[in-house]
Design a protein around this nucleic acid. Structure first.
Lengths: 208, 208
DNA sequence: ATGTAAATTTGCAATGAGTGAAGAAAAGCT
DNA sequence: AGCTTTTCTTCACTCATTGCAAATTTACAT
């Protein structure tokens, strides 16, 4: 019998989804701090206590897809294309990350851009996002080292990942702070990655 | 009359110091989560309520010197040495940061190494530290752009700072996770910075 | 020294996140 | 249906954090 997931599983997923949507909508409307867990739970028709068996904290709802995204990246690295350079691979990873952050129209919702705004504007969430990003980088470095174990050691992998990610992240934030539009951000990120790849040395004197 | 700070100021500083020491000691002994604000306040002979007029949150006690350190860095950049390269300057900044993090025997206490351990082991603190580091980088990038406004624009400055800091940070963490001793970490950081400076490209194929 | 204004500290009450325990309700299985 | 395993709910509690008003302390001018 091709049962598929039972009622129990289906229901659990539905509840989870309901919680996420209720939460993000409320956050959008009233703000993160102003929304209580009780309200979120009520909007999803479950008891406040049960909320915490779905998410360990209010923060966690916002990052509901963190694990998936990490897995996707790790997977991408493990299955790197034959002959692909470390840099090329990292670039592909970067593109994927950007795409997932800004263009996610498919899976769960179009709440993604709103979510980005939300995260950037709430200190606690920003901190959480940074930790997530950080953990990701760490795992990325390890995966990279595994994938290219002959060519680079762990420290080199970490340095490479850190430099690339650090440059991209800081450039992005500098733009956001300045209120630049998305296109300008993209351009900035490209330039940042270029600098990280070619070396900070070249930052002052652009080649040619 | 060279009054110096009045009684009020002196007392306030003493209390602040008492709170910091009490807090860090308690965190060390019982762990961060296990220590309540009430206990910290009691240990410093102050009411629980007053604690919050010294620190906005329990987390904040741990990062009591965050502002000072940031100021020191900004200052260092504003007064860069004549003819000094962007990279050279950033290296000096990095050294200062490391020194302040691991060797601070002077000012307030020798609790510094313990504090590093504490931060790394408590998720909330780690997140906070990352946000602090991030803000620092952002300001650093701005200061750098100001200091070398002729040579590099804001995005380039951000990219450079991000790359250098990112590489150093991730390399450090990779080592810490592996349980490396301090010397090895230092070495790793140097190598990471080198990679960031010369470009990620060179990570796979070290130049001779 | 005394009185008054300004700054601090404190006690008290609330709000909201997060947890533990015990029993009710739902879903799976035979 | 009857029994077992999960999941939900309720209730009770701890703790961080905040607003308020009374009590205390310090600074300053007389």
């Amino acid at each position: 019998m091709v049962d598929g997931p039972g009622l129990r599983e289906r229901k659990k997923l539905r509840t989870r989804r309901a919680l996420i949507e209720a939460a993000l909508h409320l956050f959008e409307e009233k703000g993160y701090e102003e929304t209580t867990v009780a309200e979120i739970a009520a909007a999803a028709d479950i008891s406040t206590r049960t909320f915490f068996s779905y998410f360990a904290s209010k923060e966690d709802v916002v990052f509901f897809d963190g694990q998936e995204r990490l897995d996707e990246i790790i997977d991408m690295i493990a299955h790197r294309r034959a002959g692909e350079t470390v840099v090329e691979l990292l670039l592909r990873v970067g593109e994927l990350g950007m795409a997932r952050t800004f263009a996610e129209t498919d899976r769960l919702m179009e709440l993604t851009p709103a979510r980005a705004r939300l995260i950037m504007s709430v200190p606690v969430l920003q901190a959480r996002a940074l930790r997530l990003l950080f953990d990701t980088q760490l795992q990325l470095a390890e995966a990279l080292h595994r994938a290219y174990s002959e060519e680079i050691d762990l420290v080199e992998a970490a340095a490479a990942v850190g430099a690339l990610a650090g440059a991209a992240k800081l450039a992005t934030m500098a733009c956001l702070n300045r209120g630049d539009p998305p296109e300008r951000i993209w351009e900035a990120v490209r330039r940042a990655i270029e600098i990280a790849m070619r070396g900070v040395q070249s930052a002052g004197s652009r080649p040619s």
